[in-house]
């Protein structure tokens, strides 16, 4: 599939799943996975950095509007978009050969986990810490961060393995 089309499709589907389903998880308030980070992580490697930043800003703003938490996810998304090229280039020494998205099949599971886990964890930490904004109930905050990160990363891996088979 065309690189642009597949990326746009990914954005649309993931945003709908996030807003309609994941934002309403009913089991516990400690589980707030933010799957939409996956869209930022899977942007084409050769995308200009400024475009990546703007996409991060737009996606974060959209998510913030859907949850009435203006600025929160925007801040975190822009940071992730800024850091991703550096972390990706560090994890994949021969990144210049990559044409499209850094999927697990393209870059291998080691490099994949090395980029996905730190960035997802950072994103969840910033959003949840900034939202709670106090050290009161820090154990809940930490549980919230870890649980949500684990669920988000596992979901990303499952989607990746399912969608981008060799």
């Amino acid at each position: 599939m065309n690189i642009a089309v597949s990326n746009i499709l990914r954005f649309v589907v993931v945003i709908i799943v996030q807003v309609v389903l994941l934002n309403h998880l009913h089991f516990t308030p400690l589980l707030t996975p933010m799957l939409y980070v996956w869209c930022l992580l899977m942007l084409p490697v050769k995308l200009p950095k400024w475009a990546e930043l703007l996409i991060g800003f737009g996606l974060g703003l959209l998510m913030d509007i859907s949850t009435n938490t203006l600025g929160l996810q925007t801040f975190s998304c822009v940071l992730i978009a800024f850091l991703r090229p550096m972390i990706l280039r560090n994890a994949v020494p021969d990144w210049e050969r990559l044409l499209a998205s850094p999927t697990m099949h393209e870059i291998g599971w080691g490099a994949y986990l090395k980029t996905v886990i730190p960035l997802t964890f950072l994103h969840h930490s910033i959003v949840i810490l900034m939202q709670n904004f106090s050290l009161a109930g820090i154990e809940y905050t930490l549980a919230n961060i870890f649980l949500s990160t684990i669920v988000a990363v596992l979901t990303m891996i499952v989607c990746d393995l399912f969608l981008y088979r060799p």
Binding site: F57, G60, L70, G71, L72, T74, F75, L79
Partner: peptide
């Protein structure tokens, strides 16, 4: 610039 805008919105 984008981060400053985000923080401004947040606060």
């Amino acid at each position: 610039v984008l981060e400053v805008v985000a923080l401004y919105l947040f606060f």
